[in-house]
Amino acid sequence: MVGSDQKVLADATSEARRLLKDEAAAVLNLADRIGDDFVMALEILMNTRGMVFISGLGKSGLIGRKIAATFSSTGTPAYFVHPVESLHGDIGLISPGDVLIAISHSGSNEELLRPARILVQRDVKIIAMTSSPNSPLAKIADVTLDLGVKKEACPLGLAPTTSTTATLAMGDALAASLIVAKGIKREDFAMSHPAGALGRRLLMKVREVMHPRDAIGLVSPETTIRQTVAEMTKMPLGAVCVVDEAGDLLGIVTDGDVRRILLKSHLDELIDEPVASVMTRSPVRVRENELASHALALMEDRPSQISVLPVVEPGSDKLVGLVRLHDLIQLGMK
């Protein structure tokens, strides 16, 4: 690489750092703009009995689509409507009592203003997101969220960069506030994300991932350690559960326990002792109707991690299965 090329790349990477710092500063500036107007916008969104629509043109429209998706996935159903398409029939989707979040950096985009003016007459609440608080859009809006972006971070000062980043961040701030205000829980969030690793973490129950009772090693307290090791070899899941005659969980012996037993100096005497003498009594267990993510937390969020967990019936100690850390990791729970 010649020297001139190196200088160009150095200047380019320096510009990248500057842009990121400028955009970060614009986002941080929004925190100081969370005031009465933001609260009013939040109240409008919370109190509407209608639908939430989001509209914007060009890059603002792309950001609007993402904000609508975030709203919908976090408990506030929202739809993006293209301002031009709205003038060719789509405006019929929006009814009195609905809310429109109108996005425009300049606030003077006529393609957005035309449908917004019509919707004002329909008793649709308008929330403007703009950096021009005295613009035509701000003047017809019920409330304006001033993003305060004075210039774009683009080296030419032309391409939407800082303005779109700030708009996206303000949309996220609204979505996060609505989560808190509406009392949205993780379980509610999961209902909108049933697929993939996220859905598994938030929805999958222990009974769906456990090895059933007939697939795990079971012994009684009187079973010898020798016989217990044989049972563990026969059912290689990393542990054998100790149960009483009624099938209730009494203890567990893991692969790690066996290794520690083998290191004892009096192994010949110990090997034919009852397993009750070496088992872990009243081990940590999980209910079959609990979330698999809870089982993962029980195994990992402790001073000494464990790799297997007995599963019992709700409201009792009746053993119904065994869940392994390895299986949860394979399912993408971690």
Rank of each mutant, 00 (worst) to 15 (best):
D172C: 14
A173C: 15
A173H: 13
A173I: 12
L174W: 12
L174A: 11
L174T: 04
L174E: 09
L174S: 12
A175V: 15
A175K: 04
A175Y: 04
A175S: 13
A175E: 05
A176G: 07
A176Q: 12
A176D: 06
S177K: 14
S177R: 10
S177Y: 10
L178Q: 13
L178F: 12
L178M: 14
I179D: 04
I179S: 02
I179E: 01
V180T: 12
V180C: 05
V180N: 11
V180E: 13
A181D: 09
K182N: 05
K182E: 02
K182C: 02
K182V: 03
K182D: 00
G183Y: 07
G183E: 04
G183F: 05
G183C: 07
G183Q: 10
I184A: 12
I184M: 15
K185T: 13
K185D: 08
K185E: 12
K185P: 07
K185C: 09
K185L: 07
K185A: 06
R186D: 10
R186E: 15
R186N: 11
R186L: 11
R186A: 15
R186I: 09
E187S: 12
E187A: 02
E187K: 00
E187M: 02
D188G: 09
D188R: 00
D188A: 01
F189T: 06
A190C: 15
A190Y: 09
A190M: 09
M191N: 09
M191Y: 07
M191T: 11
H193S: 02
P194W: 01
P194Q: 10
P194A: 01
P194T: 00
P194M: 03
A195L: 09
A195N: 13
G196A: 10
G196C: 04
G196L: 02
G196V: 05
G196H: 05
G196F: 03
A197H: 03
A197C: 09
L198W: 07
L198H: 10
L198N: 07
G199T: 00
G199M: 04
G199K: 04
R200F: 06
R200W: 05
R201W: 01
R201E: 00
R201C: 02
R201S: 04
R201G: 06
L202W: 00
L202D: 00
L203Y: 08
L203G: 08
M204L: 13
M204Q: 05
M204D: 08
M204I: 12
M204P: 08
K205Y: 06
K205N: 10
K205A: 09
K205T: 10
